[in-house]
Design a protein around this nucleic acid. Structure first.
Lengths: 352, 352
DNA sequence: CAGAGAGGTACCACGATATTG
DNA sequence: ACAATATCGTGGTACCTCTCT
């Protein structure tokens, strides 16, 4: 009948030790699997642990080891498809490795917020940090902040780097653009993401590269904001110009909005204008027309980021994680150019 | 030139105390704002804190106070729109309250996985737990698990409860169904979510209630799986029956799939059959036709859940959190019944 | 005298409480 | 009475020592 002391707190290691008739140190060895314990003692300890339902105290452990077995994630735009998938991948990988995942979400992506978020995580003594905020500010903020903790950045570009998990979105954009070019379109117009996002520049770069590879001068970019409404507004600028026959939108949401605007303006997709999106969001297959788009396995990217962090934490010097590669998903929103005869080897035979 | 000891670890409270010429206890008072400190000492301490860039050590603090200032979130289906929004809301509210958010994502929703996830969080000594897994298994698992920690469940039903944050989805479904009924449709068919989800039963209940309020016997339910593909498959069963004129899909993804199937089958939406969705996912305004649907502020629900947890942690006995209410978003996918004359006060005048 | 297994002791960085000035 | 300080408790791990083959 002890008083309120130890109220609702579980048994301690020393309790287990007493019950098993060993030192608390032996209990520690068994619990942590450090080895060097005789089968007899191990058995007694395990029995006692089970009987008392002993669980080790993470704070005490963290205090003694100076490790928390948790990683921090700085995220922005969780509502977006890519980031939320990636987060799920991270959490999953972390769980399997015995780490917990601490989430910090950003309200703004200016350098100050970024630094504050990272500082927050550092204050929480996380063992590693994953920055899931693919914006320019993240890069500059990270350059300025000194962090004594392994840190990995999601980077939607082409350049591998020890501190980055790369989704090769320039290649993805190139795939999309080349696909349209292969369909005979003389050029491809681009509805880009908003400035300040790494994905925006990467996709612009890929689009431009594909064009220039064929000696085509890239037309002016129309800048959207990732939303369907933004895509619709952008497309309004394109819809009046009868020479535009192919549009590459930097994400599926904008593609969706663009398609609506184009159709409403009498420029039928895909008959008059072809549209290719980016992301392969759920449901894009059921758009009208079904959206031709570029898919990335963001969950896989998340898993790689977590895995990479663990290697860093373990003190390894892993090479840059391999880039996550895009896949072109051909559906119905892009067809050959109306005035172009194309060889019959193409894949566009859906509506004979 | 101390050896590798204290390597990469910041200053301790005692270091601050020494620099300020006070006891470590006074530093503690200042840092925690406990009061009872003379202005002089406070000032010296704050100066020393700033100079050394002192940050308190959360593990030590947790050990001494038996509180971690972190909450755990058990989540399932993060890829879904609702949960990911809610998670962002939770994280935000937690941050503002000085709590960190620890994420555990579920692979399966059977009772064992649920119990394991909660156990995991309890092992991490979180101060409170939010279960963001609106499935039946969560309810039964929670009933079986004994947790000595404040716990709040997301509950997409109608019943308020001290341990629940309610999104009144039965009212949402009722709104959708009644809207269709008001448009003159003799009955409303339902494409439901998969069994095992609380949201599924809630939406079925609301749909049924609306029907029965008018003395209509609910027709057979077609069960989907939340995906557009599932919705498309379900709609295939409905498309052949010319008497079905109104469909309420349990989420927007399924509505999207259903619309495609119906249109492909020659049953034009909204001319021949009306469709209403649920969730108001991004882009649903740009579907063809723009989707009439039901919106919930899931981020707000997340914030309420976090807020509620904090009150529980503080030892209060807050009443049940108020339910998050639905809003009907009328767009173009539902029209009056083709054979019904409706008063011209209705809102369906988009395409004159 | 090794080497392996077991135990003792010193922290880890802080908050709470009693005690002192 | 009030501000400031000593002392102890928090649950573990790291490292060293000791014993026993």
């Amino acid at each position: 009948m002890s008083p309120t002391t130890r109220e609702s707190r579980g048994p301690r290691m020393i309790d287990v030790a007493r019950l098993a008739g060993v030192s608390h140190q032996s209990v520690s060895r068994v619990v942590n699997g450090s080895g060097g314990v005789s089968p007899d003692i191990r058995d007694r300890v395990e029995r006692a642990v089970a009987q008392l339902r002993y669980r080790r105290h993470p704070a005490a452990r963290a205090l003694a080891t100076n490790r928390t077995f948790s990683i921090g994630v700085v995220s922005f735009g969780l509502a977006q498809y890519g980031p939320s998938e990636a987060l799920a991948g991270i959490a999953r990988e972390a769980q399997e490795a015995g780490y917990s995942t601490s989430l910090t979400s950003l309200l703004d992506v200016d350098v100050d917020s970024m630094a504050a978020a990272v500082g927050h995580l550092v204050d929480d003594s996380v063992d590693g940090i994953i920055v899931l905020a693919p914006v320019d500010a993240a890069l500059t903020a990270m350059a300025g902040v000194e962090v004594h903790v392994p840190l990995v950045l999601f980077y939607p570009g082409a350049h591998a780097h020890e501190q980055r998990v790369v989704t090769d979105e320039v290649q993805g954009a190139e795939l999309a653009t080349t696909h349209l070019l292969d369909l005979g379109h003389p050029t491809v117009h681009h509805i880009s993401g908003p400035a300040g996002w790494l994905g925006t520049s990467a996709r612009v770069a890929g689009w431009r590269r594909a064009l220039e590879a064929r000696g085509i001068h890239p037309p002016a970019i129309v800048e959207g904001d990732w939303t369907a409404a933004g895509g619709a507004a952008c497309a309004a600028q394109l819809a009046t110009r009868t020479e535009v026959s192919a549009v590459f939108a930097a994400n599926d949401q904008m593609a969706l909005g663009a398609i609506k605007t184009l159709n409403d303006a009498g420029r039928k997709v895909p008959d008059d204008v072809s549209v290719v999106g980016f992301d392969d969001i759920p449901g894009s297959e059921y758009f009208r027309p079904p959206l031709t788009t570029v898919r990335f396995d963001f969950a896989e990217a998340g898993r790689r980021a977590a895995h990479h962090i663990f290697e860093l934490i373990a003190g390894g010097r892993p090479g840059p994680a391999g880039p996550v590669l895009p896949e072109l998903i051909v559906r119905g929103s892009a067809r050959h150019h109306p005035l172009t005869v194309i060889e019959q080897t193409d894949e566009q035979r859906r509506n004979p």
